[in-house]
Design a protein around this nucleic acid. Structure first.
Length: 477
RNA sequence: GUCCCGUUGGUCUAGUGGUUAGGACUCAGGAUUUUCAUUCCUGCAUCAGGGGUUCAAUUCCCCUACGGGAUACCA
């Protein structure tokens, strides 16, 4: 065994990658990069009842889109495979037999109905709802009797009844549990598949994982896991429990209160760079005020020691702001490429690359998510729609004079450029005595469908000479 | 109910035994811009409460309150 640091991201394939999981994956990845270790992906698919078609593929794709590359994993291989827990049942069987032989695990023949009843009774008495251990000390004969009858059973961990356990978590530091509050956890279900607890410990050991970096919801299970390591005679990895990501009401971030799937964020036009940057700062921060980080910078700056203890609210407003920043400050070429699919989806045909770039460039200053780009670009594609109020403005005497003047002059010109536009603007004011409020808003309304928006030269350039004339012509009565 | 964890403005956070407690988002006002957006400036607002320890506590300790997580043959 080497001294290499090995960490893992071990999601269960529920159909999509949760943003909270993204952060867990990111922290694992960053730590591995920081210390020159290995980052492993393992699929925890031991629950057959929750099988979702295509979930793993989806997970892998999302991880890839986010740029979190792993060193070993399902589609990548590695010397510690297989990386699907569903393909490792024989391994778990072997180890659970060892526990059975050692007497730190036992067969439990209680039916789900019995267990429910037990729990109800405990609740009624306002007691802890742990398993009462009635199968803990069955005699050999009793066990054989059950087996002979073909009774279904699970295998439970025989946790100590007395004393306490103290361990050191990288984030929480010292944590202590009394053994009499720890349940006899089910290790193997009646369908023969292991539960998370068994599979996780066995795999982390076999895969030589040195640091378990995962969500805080696992903290209460640590005593069971540690007891498993001890029972096997294995050295446990370092524990590192991350604070939770929260809804705005401070409950654990959930689907009910908005998007949590990374792919949904991606589809809405949040950049992978934004998501990574944003999520990295939820629960971790380097000393100082820097809040824009590339992945490479995060790899350098990251440290487990600086992970916060308290949960953090996932603030959409700030995410939107940050995405806007990335939209504006990332190379235009990259943004234009990301934007392409939204134009395709809206069926906006892009006639001219130069104008497309120009369009994306002015759009990126006004939007926060890339999916808003089509709404912004809409006036450039297809017919404009006017409200009654707009129509009043467009039909006014001065507006009509203006449109005729512009349509004629542009038609007579050889080229529609900024110089000409500025000249016409000046002449409108001088010759027609139309200026200010009566000049700009009607023109922009006529060409862009709104009194507010991009600068006139930009609008006209993107539209092109013919379309500009056409739009004026249509409004002239 | 029981066990565990947590608590710096509304939100994300920096920081310290002695600081005017710093930055960012949001919000409000202003400047720039023909408009909108961008950008810039200014402002509002915080160390959960109570006890200790100490010359001094936001910082160390304890209690309380509040919040969260876990209490499955799900992970």
């Amino acid at each position: 065994m080497s001294n290499e640091i090995r960490v893992r991201f071990a999601p269960s394939p529920t159909g999509y990658l949760h943003v909270g999981s993204l952060r867990t994956a990111l922290y694992n990845y960053l730590y591995a990069k920081k210390v020159g270790g290995k980052f492993i992906l393992r699929i925890e698919d031991t629950d057959q009842t929750r099988y979702v078609d295509g979930a793993v593929e989806n997970l892998l794709n999302t991880l890839k889109a986010m740029g979190l590359e792993y060193d070993e994993g399902p589609d990548k291989g590695g010397e510690f495979g297989p990386y699907y827990q569903s393909e490792r049942t024989e391994i778990y069987n072997k180890y659970v037999q060892e526990l059975l032989d050692k007497g730190t695990a036992y067969r439990c023949f209680c039916t789900p109905e019995e267990l429910d009843k037990m729990r109800e009774e405990c609740k009624a008495k306002r007691l802890d709802t742990r398993y009462d251990g009635r199968c803990r000390n069955l005699t050999e004969n009793e066990i054989n009797e059950h087996l002979k009858n073909g009774d279904k059973y699970v295998i439970r961990l025989k946790v100590p009844k007395e004393g306490e356990i103290t361990f050191y978590d990288v984030v929480r530091e010292k944590v202590t549990f009394q053994w009499d509050t720890v349940d006899d956890q089910v290790l193997v279900k009646s369908d023969g598949f292991p539960t998370y607890h068994l599979a996780n410990v066995v795999d982390d050991h076999l895969m030589e994982i040195t640091h378990v970096i995962r969500g805080e919801e696992w903290l209460p299970s640590v005593p069971k896991h540690l007891f498993l390591y001890e029972s096997f005679g294995w050295k446990p990895p370092k524990m590192c429990h991350l604070p939770l990501l929260l809804n705005s009401d401070k409950s654990k971030l959930s689907k009910r209160q908005g998007d949590v799937a990374v792919e949904d964020f991606l589809n809405k036009g949040y950049l992978p760079e934004t998501l990574l940057n944003f999520v990295a700062l939820l629960g971790w921060h380097a000393p100082g005020d820097q809040e824009f980080y590339t992945l490479a910078e995060l790899e350098k700056a990251f440290s487990l020691k600086r992970i916060n203890k308290s949960g953090s609210v996932f603030d959409m407003e700030k995410l939107n702001w940050m995405n806007g920043q990335y939209l504006r400050n990332t190379d235009l070429k990259i943004i234009a490429e990301y934007a392409r699919k939204y134009f395709e989806k809206a069926e906006y045909h892009i006639p001219n690359e130069k104008h497309y770039f120009e369009l994306v460039d002015i759009a990126r200053n006004r939007i926060h998510k890339l999916d808003e780009v089509t709404e912004f670009a809409k006036p450039f594609f297809g017919e404009l729609e006017f409200s009654d109020e707009d129509k009043t403005i467009l039909g006014s005497q001065s507006a009509q004079t203006l449109f005729k003047f512009w349509a004629e002059n542009i038609a007579d010109s050889t080229e529609l450029n900024e110089e000409l536009i500025n000249e016409l603007l000046k002449r409108s004011a001088q010759e027609l005595e139309i200026k200010g409020k009566n000049l700009y808003p009607p023109l922009r309304l006529a060409l862009y469908g709104s009194a507010h928006g991009p600068e006139l030269p930009t609008i006209m350039d993107i539209l092109g000479k013919d379309e500009v004339i056409n739009r004026f012509q249509k409004l002239i009565k």
